[in-house]
């Protein structure tokens, strides 16, 4: 927990901009017209960091939204996962798309290559249920 207080720190963008930056370290203030004209804002850099999403998860947890917090924690991990890998994992999770070994392989990749243990555990849980419900190729 980051010790954030939802009553005083949320919205982070307006109440705690000091805590927020883009993946390359630009502050919210830097995302302005002058910087845009100077050409220093890159489209792919304008997104939430894992740290920001973890803070949002903590805020959600603090207002008793446990499942939303879990979702945001998985999201924090997925910030490290490239777009094409995300789409490949999504496809693998669809019914009848993968065999057990393939799904387990994705879980390992998420865990080891991308440091995404919560997502990996989620994929393994899906694998277990898919086997029980006959949705494995």
């Amino acid at each position: 927990m980051t010790g954030l207080d939802p009553d005083t720190d949320y919205p982070l963008g307006t109440r705690r901009p000091d805590l927020i930056s883009t993946p390359s370290g630009m502050s919210l203030d830097d995302l302005n017209l002058e910087q845009l004209r100077a050409g220093v804002i890159a489209g792919e850099d304008v997104r939430a960091t894992a740290e920001t999403l973890r803070m949002q998860a903590d805020i959600a947890e603090a207002v008793n939204r446990h499942q939303l917090a879990e979702n945001l924690r998985r999201a924090a991990e997925l910030t490290r996962v490239p777009d094409d890998v995300i789409l490949a994992v999504y496809t693998a999770l669809r019914p009848g798309r993968s065999n057990a070994a393939a799904l387990e392989e994705w879980a390992q990749t998420l865990e080891e290559t991308y440091d995404a243990p919560a997502v990996a555990a989620f994929v393994r849980e899906a694998l277990e249920v898919s086997i029980a419900r006959g949705l494995i190729k």
Binding site: A48, L93, R94
Partner: peptide
Amino acid sequence: DTPWSKAFLASAYAS
């Protein structure tokens, strides 16, 4: 889809 594939997608959007 399955509940897991949809929930995964939800996290992907949030990410």
